[in-house]
């Protein structure tokens, strides 16, 4: 029983993180969604995925952005980190909305532009992890 308790304590200790690390981890689904939107847009432009996947992906990305915004609000991480993440969230939210409209209107040029923008947001969030 003591050994099992030790394993439990060890695992919980391993998962201990600083406030900055916790916030970066909380933002990782958004980073992943930025990459997903970029990739899915490229595939949509190539007619490899349907419009509905794009629309549902945009919706899911926005949910992830909202969830991360709440985490930023609660976080005790450094101000600069919170500011950088908030700015990336705003940018991705705007890009996702524009992308959603571009898909609805079958506007390939805007979709291609937003795919590149999502790539850029991913890179920004990735840089915060370094």
């Amino acid at each position: 029983m003591r050994r099992l308790a030790f394993v439990l304590v060890f695992v919980l200790a391993c998962s201990h993180q600083s406030d900055d690390q916790k916030l970066i981890k909380a933002a990782s689904p958004v980073k992943s969604w930025a990459a997903s939107l970029a990739f899915a847009s490229e595939l949509w432009l190539d007619n490899r995925v349907p419009k509905s996947l794009m629309e549902n992906s945009v919706e899911s990305a926005k949910k992830a952005i909202d969830a991360t915004r709440k985490e930023v609000g609660k976080s005790k991480a450094s101000e600069s980190l919170r500011k950088n993440i908030s700015s990336a969230l705003d940018e991705l939210s705007d890009s996702a909305s524009t992308l959603g409209a571009a898909v609805r209107n079958h506007d390939a040029n805007i979709a291609a532009r937003e795919a590149k923008r999502c790539h850029g947001i991913y890179d920004k969030l990735e840089a915060l992890e370094q």
């Binding site: 990782s28 969604w33 899915a40 899911s60 991913y122 990735e126």
Partner: peptide, 25 residues
Amino acid sequence: SRGIEVDDYQQAALMLTRAFPYWGF
């Protein structure tokens, strides 16, 4: 390789689109 983690099946659904371009999805 693209930094996509699977938090939703929609993300997983993209995985065959490179090997089977037009019917992978």
